[in-house]
Write a protein that binds this DNA or RNA. Structure first.
Length: 501
RNA sequence: CGGGGUGUGGCGCAGUUGGCUAGCGCGCGUCGUUCGGGACGACGAGGUCGCCUGUUCAAAUCAGGUCACCCCGACCA
């Protein structure tokens, strides 16, 4: 019975794909970042609590992405958390897709009842929805902001929190409340909106690969997987250590669907009134989940240097007060020089603890590079540098440390990416027979490149029989004649099938 | 919402044919010895056994109810 219980609670199917993980460390990520963990018995347990450590990673992501967005002409703004229910009713298709799992505000006061308990009072005439996404409330405003072709393109991004009352939550990947950015643009032509859709999915790809060190496949969602209100949806898909695919970001071409629902019109150069063409695109704190699942190991988080809040930690080592007095000044001099010359956030861990536990703690936190400075190093004018990604130790001259660190960090960044890319490539297979397809999906999983005729029914059947869905139709799909993996009809090229989160 | 499971110090758990003062490991505090990869000893703090009702001389343990969480499924812009 006990074994059964453990099996249930540690079910590999359901857990975050990190690695096998011993039981002691099975929840290390709660110490480091924490998601979906409130006090026991809390009805909002599926909401997220982000510890300072985790939030600092998100802040770094925000900083980098914000800059990338602005380089493409996007500006930031903020819109209301509450959306009148009538707004959601305006776009019928949009509603079909997601109107179900929302938090609804129906009252605006609390009153004490006869038992001295607070009860909702003062019912609202029109219920308000806590935003599950902001298309409707933003485009209602856009309809007033946009009059002329001179007002276009309108390129706005919002950093916000979002609530989706999911039936089942998973730490980091699907929380009831999450943080994200959502970009919403309006354009004068179809082509321009097409370009923007593609441009932003490429920004996401660049961000994931260059900063998060996560290789992704960019492509199109199929009709059945696209955002309900969109003409088409593009996305980036990343492979996790368990071979499942995670949608890391999406960019939607909305066409004129929302413009028609919200009367977003402009007067063009010829004096004619036209509906605008729109796009929307977003990434969320789910990226923190991706970061954990792609790089982490049994000892905890592994952070890419470019996003690590603390890329370097210096652990001074001493065994007596005299040694401590000798080591600490040198440690702080080195740290100061690194911080000033390289503009790197470095921590000196001078707590009264034995060194071993300190090492493990910083490993758990994912700090990319650890420097050790003890009596032996003082004698030889060295520091010992230890890489988080592969555990390699190296003695470095104290004089050379300023040149060493940037190289080492770049090295770690690159090898994290290359390791993830190698893994992704190894787990991506071209498959032409359905038997083989099923075998892979029953086994280790991964990406399967297979032919698909384009018929939603085949997609549906494959999902039912193997749990695999079409992650995307890759942009770099080669034209190649073949036969659909399911029905055998003619196909123009291969798509990516995978089990998804 | 359907199926299964679990609620006992901060965390992980044992105890459940009703019976002694509710235990163990980790963590936490103080002191000492330690200190270059998760140290050791001594002492110590910390619990209305999820909640309610019932049965009983006696309930963590049995019964009924209730609340919450976890897992599988359905759902997932």
């Amino acid at each position: 019975m006990k074994e059964e219980k453990i099996k249930q609670n540690n079910s590999e199917e359901s857990d975050l794909a990190i690695t096998k993980r011993s039981k002691d460390y099975s929840q290390w990520y709660l110490d480091v970042i924490e998601a979906g963990k409130l006090a026991d018995n809390s009805p909002v347990r599926g909401c997220m609590v982000i510890r300072p450590n985790g939030y600092a990673i998100w802040e770094n992501m925000q900083k980098v992405m914000d800059k990338m967005f602005k380089e493409t002409g996007v500006v930031n703004a903020y819109f209301p958390l509450f959306i009148p229910i009538s707004f959601l009713n305006k776009e019928a298709k949009h509603v079909e897709g997601f109107a179900k799992e929302c938090a609804v505000v129906t009252h605006h006061r609390l009153e004490l009842d006869a038992d001295g308990k607070l009860q909702p009072a003062a019912k609202l005439d029109e219920p308000l929805i806590v935003r599950p996404t902001s298309e409707t409330i933003m485009y209602d405003t856009y309809s007033r902001w946009i009059n002329s072709y001179r007002d276009l393109p309108l390129l706005i991004n919002q950093w916000a929190n979002i609530v989706r009352w999911e039936m089942r939550t998973r730490p980091f990947l699907r929380t009831m409340e999450f943080l994200w950015q959502e970009g919403h643009t309006a354009h004068g032509t179809n082509e321009e909106a097409d370009e923007r859709t593609l441009q932003m999915v490429n920004v996401y790809k660049k961000f994931c690969e260059e900063y998060m060190a996560i290789p992704v496949i960019a492509g199109m969602k199929t009709e059945s997987e696209k955002f309900a209100g969109a003409v088409y949806t593009t996305c980036i898909e990343a492979m996790m250590q368990d071979g499942k695919s995670l949608q890391a970001g999406t960019s939607h071409m909305l066409g004129q669907n929302f413009a028609k629902a919200f009367e977003v019109k402009f007067l063009d150069q010829t004096g004619e009134r036209q509906y605008v063409w729109q796009t929307s695109w977003g990434v969320s704190t789910r990226l923190i989940g991706a970061l954990i699942m792609v790089h982490s190991d049994d000892n905890g988080l592994v952070l890419p240097p470019k996003l690590a809040p603390t890329p370097v930690v210096l652990v001074p080592i001493w065994s007596s007060e005299e040694e401590k007095a000798k080591v600490l000044p040198v440690a702080s001099t080195i740290a100061k020089s690194i911080s000033e010359k390289l503009n790197i956030n470095i921590k000196v861990d001078d707590r009264e603890m034995r060194p071993g536990p300190k090492f493990y703690e910083w490993e758990k936190m994912g700090v990319p590079l650890r420097l050790e400075l003890g009596p032996k190093d003082l004698a030889s004018n060295c520091v010992v540098a230890v890489r988080r990604d592969n555990g390699e130790k190296e003695k470095v001259d104290q004089d050379k440390i300023i040149e060493y660190i940037p190289k080492a960090l770049q090295n770690i960044q690159d090898s994290l990416f290359n390791k993830a890319l190698k893994f992704q490539k190894e787990k991506t297979k071209k498959v032409d027979f359905y038997d083989e397809f099923k075998k892979i999906m029953d086994g280790d999983g991964g990406f399967v490149l297979a032919h698909w005729c384009g018929n939603a029914r085949c997609e549906e059947q494959v999902k039912e029989e193997t749990k695999a869905t079409i992650a995307c139709v890759p942009f770099d799909q080669k034209k190649e004649k073949g036969k659909c993996i399911y029905c055998g009809e003619e196909s123009e090229g291969r798509v990516i099938f995978a089990k998804a989160y």
